[in-house]
Design a protein around this nucleic acid. Structure first.
Lengths: 155, 155
DNA sequence: ACGGACTGGTTGCAAACTGCAACCGCCGGG
DNA sequence: CCCGGCGGTTGCAGTTTGCAACCAGTCCGT
């Protein structure tokens, strides 16, 4: 229990997401992707060929629509994702990774390899894992090409 | 507002951290490291040569001691960190990365490279970045050796 | 032996964030 | 004209986070 009944001033809350706690690179991604959902959105964009709000919402992990809307907006604000109208359906929007987002590919592959090694429940196909070990560069090129073509390719 | 004043049963909360939302490798690390602090603890262990509770607490980002205690306990529970008494000081404890924790090195290096490329404020030394690009394997070997020696080496 | 400082935490409270489910305006198709 | 899909928003409850005070055990100097 705080000792004094008249508690002194407390620091105002930090809604200021532009103010980082430090200039450490690890801290930067902890602040950008450090929550339970953001990485899953990136995964859906990068490996599952998803582009529309409803597709993300339909993910196995069942993200709530308000959380999804918030994460997409944040990712857009920090330049990892871009939103544009779908030319085929005027009522739809298309979400896509920017180059900054695509540059996360190596991180995502290392994450996949680590989980596959250390989590027995992880269900990544064997050929994908051997490709990460044996031919990282070639695999990445193929994945990025598939990304441009809008196909589902990932683990 | 919910329409019916008698709201139906809601699903009980999930304190059950052993139950994953899916078997996706990305989801696994999102659930394990998906918060604003865990990665910073890993960083301190991996690159800054920190070993004691007080050293982590003294990090630039100013983690609260209850959050730190919780994160260390979680990391220990999932086998990324190990705790043992410090032979030199009976009142101290030493926290160390297990092999599972050390295997995160490639992920951390890719994260560092990505931040350095896309965040202007990131202050990683140039030589470290070129080493990541030019000689990943050699750099990793050196870093792991330094880890065993308990030195500070990182970005 | 004693006091003070350091160790690794725990506790109480308030503020913030997350999750759920209901709801809503817009568009397109039949 | 209605009906469903689309991309959200809103209200509430439950959970997590942050802060600061506090604490027991150990170490150190005197």
């Amino acid at each position: 229990m705080p000792r004094s009944p008249d508690r002194p001033k407390r620091r105002p809350p930090r809604h200021d997401s532009a103010q980082l706690r430090s200039n450490c690179p690890i801290n930067f991604v902890a602040e950008t992707f450090g929550d339970k959902w953001t990485l899953l959105v990136i995964r859906d964009l990068m490996f599952k060929g998803k582009r529309h709000f409803g597709e993300f919402r339909a993910s196995e992990e069942a993200i709530a629509s308000n959380i999804l809307a918030d994460r997409l907006q944040r990712l857009e604000a920090c330049g990892v994702v871009e939103k544009r109208p779908d030319p085929a359906h005027r009522s739809k929007l298309i979400y896509e990774l920017t180059q900054k987002g695509r540059d996360l590919m190596p991180v995502m592959l290392e994450i996949t390899a680590w989980s596959a090694k250390h989590d027995a429940r992880t269900n990544t196909p064997k050929p994908f894992l051997t490709a990460i070990k044996r031919d990282r560069e070639g695999l990445m090129k193929g994945l990025l090409a598939a990304l441009d073509a809008g196909q589902k390719v990932g683990p």
